[in-house]
Computed example of a mutant assay.
Amino acid sequence: MHRRSFLKNTGTFSLAVGLAPYLSHLDFFNDTEDAKAPFFKLSLAQWSLHKAILESKTLDPFDFPKKARQLGFDAVEYVSQLYTIDNANATAGINNLVKVLNARSSDNGIKNVLIMIDNEGELAALKKSARDEAIAKHSRWVDAASGLGCHAIRVNLFGTGAENDFAIWKETSADGLGRLAHYAAKSNINVIVENHGGLSSDGGKLTEVIKAINLKNCGTLPDFGNFCVKREGGERWGTPCLEEYDKYKGVRELMPFAHGVSAKTFDFDAAGNETTIDYVKMLKIVKDAGYKGRIGIEYEGNRLSEEDGIKATKALLLKAAAQLK
């Protein structure tokens, strides 16, 4: 929903008014040595604009660095599935993607932070041959991340069949993720797992896998809002959540291994607070862990437009961080 339509909706007008004080001063933080700067730096996750890219097609994914700069960011997190790569010639396609994005990011003064990898096979698959294929496909993105000057790729830790038994999933995860991390270490690229559904959203179980691998470049990307471990119908996405892991406990468990943090938002109240996540409490967990890296903004709501949701998330992060000082 565009901002104009949003403001016409009388049921949400008070929300827009309530957010106004936060949306009006978003430019004061520009990732400089400002006295008001929080303990972290910001980046923009490309998924925050996936509707503009995939649905309305008003944003070319290659123009993401330019859009991020227009929104006041100096660093970005790419999403692999938002780019079309010909599987018959994937290496050439990814190399061209790197070339174009390097030019676009350089032209706009943007730092490339990481690439979120999706739909490239299951690293925790039950069959070794399937894990081998997933590692090969993910390895191309390790090379892409290196070429873009990123510090990491974000991966999922799915394994159809293996996820029915934690002991089996732990074993297959340690193998697939561990071998990929060994490959990535040669390029100084971190391989980081996001809590993204199923057993990966159980903070305690995911950290067991990371500890078992025991590699410095193999870690986590704690996401504030992805802690559903069981959905209706056994689906991975889309259906109602039946069982959710405690999000604050989960982030606390994942932070010691974090090479990035994802600030997820869905909706905001009239005061600009996220309706399902206590951001002050969450940021305190992040700060207490000694984290001083990037926090990526990932808005996934429907009430605000994507751009307004990004701005509201940024404002909330800065407001919550200020309360910790």
Rank of each mutant, 00 (worst) to 15 (best):
N214K: 05
L157V: 08
V79N: 00
A322W: 12
E306R: 10
L283W: 01
V191G: 00
E171Q: 10
L26P: 09
N273S: 13
S187D: 02
K292F: 05
T265D: 01
F39N: 03
N87Y: 07
K67L: 14
L283A: 02
S56L: 07
I153M: 05
S80A: 13
D27F: 14
K8V: 11
G203T: 05
D107R: 10
S80T: 12
E163F: 10
P240F: 15
A124C: 09
G121C: 12
R3E: 11
D267P: 04
E298A: 10
I297Q: 01
C218S: 02
N89A: 11
F62D: 15
R131N: 11
L206F: 01
L42P: 02
S24E: 07
V100E: 15
N108H: 15
S200K: 05
A130Y: 04
G272R: 00
W141K: 07
N95G: 08
A271L: 11
S43P: 01
I117Y: 03
F62H: 15
G178Y: 03
N164E: 14
K137V: 01
V280Q: 00
E33I: 06
P256I: 08
A152Y: 02
A90N: 01
N9G: 12
G176L: 11
G238M: 09
A167M: 11
R303P: 00
L59K: 01
G250V: 03
F166E: 14
E232I: 07
L324S: 14
S173L: 11
A152S: 14
F62M: 15
L59H: 01
L15R: 07
L44C: 14
T91L: 07
I310R: 00
L19T: 10
D308C: 15
S43V: 06
E253R: 07
D269H: 04
K205E: 12
V191A: 02
N9Y: 13
K314M: 07
L199P: 00
D175K: 09
P256D: 10
F28G: 06
A90I: 02
L101Y: 10
P21G: 09
Y248V: 10
A35M: 05
L254M: 09
N214I: 06
K205V: 10
N156A: 09
F158P: 00
N195F: 04
L283T: 01
S129M: 11
E235W: 12
S139P: 08
A320W: 00
S129R: 13
N156I: 05
Y245A: 11
L177F: 15
G121Q: 11
G204W: 14
T276Q: 08
G197W: 00
K211A: 09
A68Q: 06
S105D: 12
M1H: 08
I192H: 05
C241D: 13
P240I: 15
L148Y: 09
F227V: 14
G219Y: 01
R104L: 12
F266P: 02
N96H: 06
D269M: 05
L157P: 00
